[in-house]
């Protein structure tokens, strides 16, 4: 037995599974935060566009904070705030809550833009045809506004997907954190980072291309 103890070992096939699992975590965190953030953001955006001045002002100043403070700081801040106010949430739950709020703040301004992009005459026409407020929202403003802002919504969603990498600061093992762990062990930073980067790129690039096409098609 002349086996020597080595601290660093090369990149193995197993590590690919480790990375793959971490990539799934990234996808999961992003998917949950984007969907809940979009729902919340739609409501907030509606409030921003149609609410009374007080509502608009309050919502705007709250959401503005999430847009003006770095996400990294928000994550650490809330991760440390939750235990203080009595909720001992792990990195996963804290990460999702913060990312959802962040998404909500970004989506809200997108949704407001969408609602405001539908001109007043169109809305009056819908109402004068006998539609109720909710009906005009659902059948007129929603479909027209959606066209105007779907590309920017995709942009926001991709941004959140990429920003979900920051949850690693809380110690949650998502893709970038996993690659950091592997880099420390295998001492092969270039290969591993290239793999992680390729994953993000493969997700983000086709979607951003698609959104650009949508934009061009709908603009004409």
């Amino acid at each position: 037995m002349n086996e020597t103890v080595t601290f660093f070992s090369g990149f193995k096939i197993n590590d690919l599974f480790f990375l793959g699992e971490a990539a799934l975590q990234t996808l999961m965190i992003a998917a949950i935060s984007i969907s809940s953030g979009t729902l919340l953001g739609a409501i907030c955006g509606w409030g921003l566009a149609e609410g009374k001045t007080v509502v608009r002002w309050t919502l705007n100043s709250i959401l503005d904070v999430f847009r003006s403070v770095p996400l990294l700081i928000q994550l650490i801040l809330f991760y440390n705030l939750f235990p203080i106010i009595g909720f001992d949430l792990g990195p996963f739950a804290s990460g999702i809550i913060v990312l959802s709020m962040y998404t909500c703040a970004l989506v809200a301004s997108v949704v407001r833009g969408g609602i405001e992009s539908v001109q007043q005459p169109m809305r009056r026409a819908a109402r004068s045809l006998g539609m109720s407020y909710l009906q005009s929202m659902r059948h007129v403003i929603f479909p027209i506004g959606l066209r105007a802002v779907l590309p920017s919504w995709i942009g926001v969603a991709l941004g959140v997907l990429k920003d979900s990498a920051l949850v690693s600061v809380l110690g949650y093992v998502e893709l970038l954190r996993a690659s950091q762990i592997l880099m420390t062990r295998t001492q092969e930073p270039f290969l591993i980072l290239a793999l992680a980067g390729a994953f993000y790129f493969a997700l983000s690039y086709p979607l951003s291309r698609y959104s650009k096409q949508l934009e061009e098609r709908w603009a004409s």
Binding site: D163, L176, E188, F190, A194, G197, Y200, Y205, S208
Partner: peptide, 23 residues
């Protein structure tokens, strides 16, 4: 342009920090 826009900024920092160390 596409690399800068379609990967996380943190990844880019790691790349310039650790990735270039490989060279």
């Amino acid at each position: 342009i596409e690399l800068a826009r379609n990967t996380p900024a943190l990844f880019q920092l790691f790349f310039f920090g650790f990735g270039l160390g490989a060279f």
